[in-house]
Amino acid sequence: MAESTRKLATIVFTDIVGFTKITAKNEPLAMRLIEMQRATLKPIVEKYKGDWMKEMGDGLLLTFNTTKEAIDCSIEIQLTVENVANLNLRIGIHQGEVIQQGHDVLGDDVNVASRIEPFSSPGGIVVTEQINASLLRDPVYQTKFIGAPNLKGIRQSVRIYSVISHGMPQGVELPDDAKIKSPSPAPAPSASSSKMPMILGGIGLLLLIGIGFMVFSGDKSPELKEPVVSEKSIAVLPFDNMSNDADDEYFADGMTEDILTELSKIKDLMVISRTSIMKYKGTTKSIKEIGKELGVATILEGSVRRVGNRVRITGQLINTENDHHLWA
């Protein structure tokens, strides 16, 4: 077992915009895009003395010793990938204490970075108040407050700012009541429900690829001396509606149900029922707490956000024992 150390770090979380759709349409292209991302970004991260901690599907987890190194690296990354076809990124940055185990980091502050990233505009950067306080000391950087959403599984208050200098696009300003979790009841299906099969087909394929890899390769952590749950077990938490329109709650609930249906077809995979997981809709409990209550090794959580005719879908597969992101 790798030795654990605590340290203060600036955490950067990135993912590729539209990667689910690309994978559904052209899997070889998606795999080449991952390789291109690695080849393009690693030299930039090394230039700013960053640590390439983990790749999670199309997502990256990076850490830096200073805020300036992290923000300058992120800006250069976004300016560089502008010229790379299909490599369109969102970036979220937060600073806090992390627990480092070998080539991995974990902790609540790591989760904050991953939770704020979806609020970035494509090609943009969002940061928390801790990062923004450092940027205010240097007039070279300009930011704009976009909101203080209630982030799922995060108990600390988080204010999000969009970097608007250096040619970065401004993030969408959130309404006062914006949340990643929406406790309002789902309305009856509307005419827009005809779009659901197409949306579910795209994300469903990618999610099942990631889950299938996890299930059959296994996350066999040597430190688990007395496993109390099956490694091949999963709960799919209700997908969150991040849109301003309550009608989109139907899309989020429909996505959860379709994924549950497809997962139940995988032999030897224990899938928690919809009845059991719906009580966690809008919960503030941590992944570890939910995993312990349901007796599962992994949890899949996700969100749906629609702006106009565009739909943004995210999904994360998390190890309930150590809160590690296995796939995103």
Rank of each mutant, 00 (worst) to 15 (best):
S264E: 11
N244Q: 15
T128R: 00
N309K: 15
L260E: 07
E289H: 12
Q100I: 10
N111R: 07
L300E: 03
L206V: 13
P189G: 04
K21Q: 15
N322E: 12
L89T: 03
Y280M: 00
G167Q: 12
L205M: 11
T298Q: 00
G92Y: 07
M214C: 10
N322I: 10
M53R: 01
H94W: 12
G50D: 00
R6A: 08
S276V: 09
V112W: 02
I266C: 07
T67C: 12
M196A: 13
V140D: 15
H94A: 04
S193I: 14
S217K: 11
D109R: 01
S303V: 00
V84Y: 02
D177Y: 07
A191R: 09
D245W: 09
S194C: 03
T320L: 11
A70I: 02
I154A: 08
S121Q: 12
H94F: 12
L135V: 10
A85Y: 14
E257R: 12
I99E: 03
S121P: 02
M198A: 12
E3T: 12
L60R: 02
G107V: 07
P169A: 07
P197E: 09
M214N: 12
G102Q: 06
V158N: 02
G102L: 09
L326P: 01
G102I: 09
P169G: 04
R90T: 08
T40N: 06
I160G: 03
Q95T: 15
V236S: 02
S4L: 14
M168W: 05
P118V: 09
K152H: 04
Q170W: 03
F119W: 11
D248H: 05
I164S: 02
E55Y: 04
G124Y: 08
V296H: 06
L41P: 06
V127Q: 03
V105A: 00
R306P: 04
V140E: 15
P189E: 05
I131E: 04
K279H: 05
D240R: 07
L41I: 15
S190E: 13
I164M: 09
T284A: 09
F64T: 01
D258L: 02
I266Y: 05
